[in-house]
Design a protein around this nucleic acid. Structure first.
Lengths: 239, 239
DNA sequence: GCGCCTGTGCTAGCATGCCAGACGCTAGAG
DNA sequence: CTCTAGCGTCTGGCATGCTAGCACAGGCGC
């Protein structure tokens, strides 16, 4: 089926940089499935039909298998040999542990940031905080969430912490599934914005302990929100 | 043809648990290569010859490709499409970041442990500390290292933190490569044992802040050791 | 009527063959 | 002598066919 219309090999230019940019089919399938899991289109515990995916995406089983293996590695899917692949379920205990890890890491990073954050990053965070305020005042929950995620990423990226960034992204991808179940109440927005501002001010003041404490307080609030979601939607959780 | 004397179908017991125990060829290859990388048999920057591995392990390219993909996912190897697969190099900056993440996580866990560690775990740690003392007095660097790793794992496992355990194992696998380059000087052993004991005592005392501080102090010392290794063996590092 | 056994339809795991891209060497042109 | 174009060879990416193991259901013996 899949009619491979191979284009002309025209340009013989050696673009080594393209190697990084190049996106394999396996990558595309990976992104596709991950998106579906995070958005909830594939429900926790649901089976993943490889052949249907092959047909839908017009690729062979190889890229699909590779993608699912990668997702299994980051614990978003569970592979049962000779049986099937399933979207991982969410345990309430896991949510607590993920948030504990986030708290430990981000508090440490906030303390580190207090010892010096690039000026460029500072400007970006200031802009982000202004947008947060606007979104909070408008009651734009979805918009605020995007800014919220960006705020946390800006600090990590500003400190050029590649590995911490990857770990936190992995945690967030799990937590994102929980958040999808129920958005925070609009009333939470102004306080979240205030907490973010407190973190940023502490970082600017150069007091690492204060910055860490502010980050801890903020993430403890977030954890409480997740707990509420779990309590109010027990059908989506195990344990 | 080949009369497969299928054993007695007797045992009809469905051992679902076996599914988890089952080890695929890809798993075996993965373990094999990872071991080679961590032990230094495959040097940083070195090329990985897939076909040689296929021949050596008597499998086709499929399990090897899957294994290398997994290793690339945890950043132990780098795949350059249409070019080759190489053992990841070690950057001095990465070592600092890995240790920062360890410090943040393990300090948090120590604080958590101070709020209550299972009695069984306490006994195991006490035993471990006695062995540490013996190894330190005997100047058994290699033996002490095994106990050192076990000490840190015991605390995490005692708190039943699966995800933190995985993250820390991943970090340790990277750091293990650095440590292989140069073992700690024997003179470090008694102080390391003393630091471990201080951590454990703080945990038992129930003071979370003390436990976290003790863990931080210990890991800062360890970081200093890594820094020395990097300075004394610049040829093994980039950046 | 009940339970074990076997057949059937699924799955993931694996082997293999082919393709396209990236290097490196060499030969030929300037 | 130098530079470049081209070809050979190596690599990873992908498609596809086959194997083995699990689950479930229906048939056979009891």
């Amino acid at each position: 089926m899949a009619v491979q219309t191979s284009e002309k090999p025209s340009a013989r230019k050696r673009l080594v940089a393209d190697r990084a940019r190049r996106t394999s089919k396996a990558d595309q399938v990976y992104t596709e499935i991950k998106e579906a899991i995070l958005s909830g289109a594939l429900a926790p515990g649901g089976a993943i039909d490889k052949l249907a995916l092959c047909a839908k995406l017009g690729v062979s089983r190889f890229p699909v298998t590779a993608a699912i293996n990668r997702l299994a590695f980051e614990r978003l899917v569970v592979i049962e040999p000779q049986h099937g692949s399933f979207v991982a379920k969410i345990a309430a205990n896991d949510v607590r542990e993920w948030m504990m890890i986030r708290r430990a890491l981000e508090a440490e990073i906030a303390a580190e940031a207090a010892r010096g954050l690039p000026a460029e990053t500072q400007r970006e965070i200031e802009r982000n905080l202004r947008y947060q305020q606007a979104a909070a005042e408008a009651g734009d929950v979805a918009g605020f969430y995007v800014l919220d995620v960006e705020f946390h990423k800006l600090i990590v990226d500003g400190m050029a912490l590649r590995h911490a960034r990857e770990i936190l992204d992995g945690l967030r991808s799990h937590l994102e599934r929980v958040r999808r179940i129920a958005l925070s109440p609009p009333g939470r927005l102004p306080s979240a914005h205030a907490e973010h501002k407190r973190i940023f001010d502490a970082i600017l003041s150069g007091n690492g302990a204060d910055a860490a404490a502010a980050m801890r307080a903020h993430l403890d609030e977030t954890t409480a929100t997740f707990e509420r979601i779990a309590v109010q939607n027990p059908e989506n959780f195990i344990g």
